[in-house]
Design a protein around this nucleic acid. Structure first.
Lengths: 103, 103
DNA sequence: AACAGATATATGAAATTTCGCATATCAATA
DNA sequence: TATTGATATGCGAAATTTCATATATCTGTT
C-alpha cells in the first residue's frame, strides 16, 4: 500500500466520509451511503470503485444490495490512521450518521 | 483542521515525503529537501507554501535559509497520523534520507 | 423470458491540481 | 548600494480529478 496513494483515497469528501461511516458501522451498502451523504448513486459508486481499486475496501454482494467493508488486508498502520481519524473527528461525519438513522 | 483538507496535503508525493523528512529530523530547510528529493527549488517551495497555508508546517527563517517544522498546534490526531505513517513506511522515504546524508 | 430495483460504468465537460519557467523578494556581505 | 545566494511567487500550459447524464449489468420476482 503506497502511502501517497492511500492518502489520495482519503482526500475527497465523499470517499473520506464513506470510509469513516464504513469504519464506524463495520459495513455499509450503497443505498445507505446515498442517504447518509445525500448524493447521487453514480457518484457514490464511482468513489467506492476507486477505494476498491486501491485495496482500501472490499465489496460483498447480497442479493440486490452491495455491502462495503474495510479491506481485511489493509496494513495495520492504515487501519490505525482511519480509526484515529474516525475517533477524533466525529463532528465531521456526525450528520451523515444521523441521516442514516432515519432509515 | 478539516480532515479532508489535511489528507489533501498528504496526497502528493513531494509534500508527503517532505513532511516525513521534517517529522523524522525535527526540521529541514528548503535546500535540504531539494537534495533529498532531487527536485527543483520552485517546486519544493510551492508545496511547502501549500502545507504552510493549511497549518501543517511553520517556517522559520535563519539568515538565508528557511527551516520548516511541523506546526506546533497541529491537532494530536494529525500528529499521530504523520508519526504512524513515518514509522511504518520507512522504505518510502529511506532513499531521500540517504541522499540527505551525502551533504 | 420480461420486468423492476440496485449498482456499475462509459463519456465528455468542467473544475482542480501540478508543473516549468521567468521573475521577484529577502538577507548577508563586499 | 551593488551583488550574490536562498527562497518565494506569478503565470499559462499540461495533467489529473470530479461530475452529470445516459446507459449497461446484475439479481430477484412475476
Amino acid at each position: 500500500m503506497d502511502p501517497c496513494q492511500f492518502y489520495k483515497c482519503l482526500s475527497d469528501e465523499t470517499r473520506l466520509k464513506s470510509l469513516l461511516i464504513i469504519a464506524e458501522l463495520g459495513e455499509a451498502c450503497v443505498c445507505h451511503l446515498m442517504t447518509a451523504l445525500a448524493i447521487e448513486q453514480p457518484k457514490i459508486s464511482r468513489h467506492l470503485a476507486e477505494l476498491r481499486k486501491h485495496g482500501v475496501v472490499i465489496d460483498d454482494r447480497r442479493g440486490k444490495w452491495v455491502y462495503y467493508q474495510l479491506h481485511p488486508d489493509l496494513p495495520q498502520w492504515a487501519k490505525t490512521v482511519i480509526d484515529d481519524t474516525r475517533r477524533n473527528n466525529r463532528p465531521y461525519f456526525e450528520q451523515a450518521l444521523t441521516q442514516l438513522r432515519t432509515l
